[in-house]
């Protein structure tokens, strides 16, 4: 599969387009249905974070989602030009503590890391922020 890219407007109603785009690529790559769902959810979480935090719900902004086969897996790059954040400052939540204090929000990054094999960030705030996620077929 050559690299394929979809550009979506920064609006939550466009999340479905991002999910469908990566689901089709993941199926084509040979992922079973349950893995396809995990990949789609990770992409949904990444795009939701961009819409809400990087672009602060500005619908005129754009998000690009690219997919390609890589080393027996699927690599997805999601890019925006909004306000970047330092992902190393986000500590993975202690879920037991999180739940016992009825906290909410901030679970997207944790889910992305749990659902994918690799999640990397390249942040250049205001210019180009990238989250690169990989899922391998045989793990």
């Amino acid at each position: 599969m050559d690299t394929r890219t979809i550009h979506i407007e920064s609006r939550t109603e466009r999340l479905v387009a991002a999910r469908e785009f990566v689901s089709a690529a993941a199926r084509e790559c040979g992922f079973p249905d349950d893995e396809v769902s995990k990949i789609a959810l990770a992409v949904d979480e990444a795009c939701t974070n961009i819409i809400k935090h990087a672009y602060r719900n500005d619908p005129t902004k754009k998000i690009s989602v690219s997919v390609k086969n890589k080393n027996g897996g699927l690599e997805i790059v999601i890019a925006d030009s909004g306000t970047g954040f330092d992902p190393t400052r986000i500590q993975p939540p202690d879920m037991k503590e999180y739940l016992s204090h009825y906290r909410h929000g901030g679970l997207g990054v944790y889910l992305m890391k749990s659902l994918m094999d690799k999640v990397e960030y390249k942040i250049s705030s205001g210019r180009r922020n990238e989250v690169r996620m990989t899922k391998y077929l045989s793990r």
């Binding site: 939701t48 929000g105 889910l111």
Partner: peptide, 16 residues
Amino acid sequence: SYISSAGLGVFMAYIE
């Protein structure tokens, strides 16, 4: 058919 953390967050927001 589908739930993301935004949906889970709603349950967390009202349970208390």
